[in-house]
Design a protein around this nucleic acid. Sequence first.
DNA 1: TGTTTGACGGACA
DNA 2: CTGTCCGCCAAAC
Length: 101
Amino acid sequence: MVETTKTSQDRIWQVIHQIPHGKVATYGQVALLAGMPSHARLVGRILSQLPSETKLPWHRVLNSQGRITNPGRERQQSRLEAEGVTLINGRVSLKVYGWEP
DNA sequence: TGTTTGACGGACA
DNA sequence: CTGTCCGCCAAAC
């Protein structure tokens, strides 16, 4: 099958889909793993366009400070806690929950 | 084809 | 600790 040029969006989706349950990754990390260093903002833009029925664990993506930066942070927080990720003062300890591929 | 945008990152005060 | 500023650069307009 011919690999048509995948959009960066496809790669980013694929990377996020690899984040293990109960772990979290940063935007910069996702961009890096997608082969696009310094494109953290692009990751955020793409996530903002995700359909509500998406299968992607977008809630496991945080900023470099382990903080939720998104319009529906409260909902994201409950999803994370439902996976065993504890937030302290609206923050996640990347030291503990950071995804290390 | 040019300009603006942005779920970021990191440095600095 | 909080807030501000600038750099990055594809996508959206």
